[in-house]
Design a protein around this nucleic acid. Sequence first.
DNA 1: ACGATTAAAATAAACGATTTATATTTACAG
DNA 2: CTGTAAATATAAATCGTTTATTTTAATCGT
Lengths: 221, 221
Amino acid sequence: MAKRNGSSTLSENVTKKLQSDILAGQYEPGSPLTVSELAKGFEVSVAVVREALTRLATHGLVLQNPNHGFSVKTASEEELNNIIQARSLNESEALRLSIAYGDLTWESNVIAVHHKLSQTAEYREVNQKLAVSEEWSDIHRQFHYELIAACPNPVLLDICRRLWDLSEFYRHYPTPHQQTRDGRAEHKALMDAVLSRDSDRAVKIFRAHIQLTADNLFNNP
Amino acid sequence: MAKRNGSSTLSENVTKKLQSDILAGQYEPGSPLTVSELAKGFEVSVAVVREALTRLATHGLVLQNPNHGFSVKTASEEELNNIIQARSLNESEALRLSIAYGDLTWESNVIAVHHKLSQTAEYREVNQKLAVSEEWSDIHRQFHYELIAACPNPVLLDICRRLWDLSEFYRHYPTPHQQTRDGRAEHKALMDAVLSRDSDRAVKIFRAHIQLTADNLFNNP
DNA sequence: ACGATTAAAATAAACGATTTATATTTACAG
DNA sequence: CTGTAAATATAAATCGTTTATTTTAATCGT
C-alpha cells in the first residue's frame, strides 16, 4: 500500500483489501478493528482506514459503535436466513428480468463463465484441510452476476451485489459436515433453464440452490 | 454544530443534517459538494464532512468520483422508475410478512400513526406557492415504516429504508400539474386492508399507491 | 476483602496543515 | 491565430497530532 496507483485513491484500495480480507475470513466475526493498528499494517494514515471502515460499515460488513470504534460483523444462523430470504426475493426478480431482456451476447457470456466455473476446483488443500478456493469463489460470483447482468434495473442489481457480499461473509465458515450436494449439477441446471428462457424453472432452481448453501452451513437436514 | 452532543459523534450529526438537507432539496441535483466549503458552513473539520459524504455516497444519495470529490445525486425519470420497482418488490414482501407476524401492539401503532397522518396538512404555503410540508413528509414516512414494522427480517427492512430515502429524493421536485389523486383515501384503504390482514389486497393497494406517486411527478397519464 | 471513587492508560474522534492530483490560465512556438 | 506546454490555482486526499471518551488499574474508605 502506501502509494496511490492509477486514478484510484488510497481509501478505495484499502477498502477493497479490507473487504476481501474480511470476506476471506481473516478476522474473527465480532473482533475489534482498531483504526491505528490497521493504519500501521497498511502503512497509511488513520484517516484513510477510518474512511474505509466507514464505507464497510454502511455496507453492513463492519459494525460501528459511536465512541466504541469498529468491529467485524457478527454471524448468526438467523441473520443468514434473513440474508438468504432477501437475496431470494431480489435475485429471483433480477433473474426474471435478465431472462426477459438478455440478448445473444449475454447468452454467450453466461455460457463462457459457466464453462470456466465448471472447470475450476471448488476446494483446495490448506495444511491437510479442505478450504474453499479463492479463485473458485471469484468465478462463482461472476457466474451468478452474469446470470442477472441483463437485468435493466441498476438499483435492483446493486441490492443483489450487496446481499451477495453479505452472504459471502458466511461462506468461509467451518462446514460441520462434508458437503453431499452436487453444486456442479445445480449450476448446469440453472444455466440450462436460463438459456431456454424458462423463468419459472430458473427461479425455482435458483431458490433451491441458495437455500441449500445456507442449510449446508448450519447442518440442517 | 461544532460541539459534540450526547453520546453521538459529530460525524453522525453532520451526516443526518446533510441527508435531510439533500432530501429537502437544499442542493440542486448534480451540484458539487465541496468538502472545505461544507466544513466551513458546519464549523467542523474536513474529516467529519468527508466521513459524512462517504456514508451518504454508499447510501446512494451522493456521488463520489475519485479525485473529483462529491456531488449531489442526479435525478431522472428512468431512475425513479427503477427505485419504485425495487421498492415495490421489497416493501410488498415486507408488508406481507408484517401482516403475517404483526401483533395487537403493532395494529394499535398503525392506527395511531394513521390518525396522525390523516390530521396533518400535506401542503403548506411558501411565498405564494404550495410546497410539501416537512412535518407531513416525516409522518408519512413513519406511517409507511409502521406498516412494515412487524416484518421479522431486519435485512429486508434495511433495504426498504434505503429505498425510501432514495425515492424521497424525488419528492421535492416541482410537480408539473396539480395533484388530482386522493392520497388520504389511499392511505385509509391501505390501512384497512392491513388491519383486516388481507395481504393480497394490501399489496395491490400499496403498489398502486407508490406507482401513482411516480406517475404524478413526471406527469404521466 | 469488597465496592466505590479516582487516577492513569488506551483508543476513538476530530482537527488543521501538508501533500498530491486535477483544472485553469498563461506563455510560447508553429 | 491555433495547438501545445509550462505555470499557476483550486480542490481533493492524506497525514501527524490534539482532544475527548472509554476502559483499565489503583487507591481509599467502610
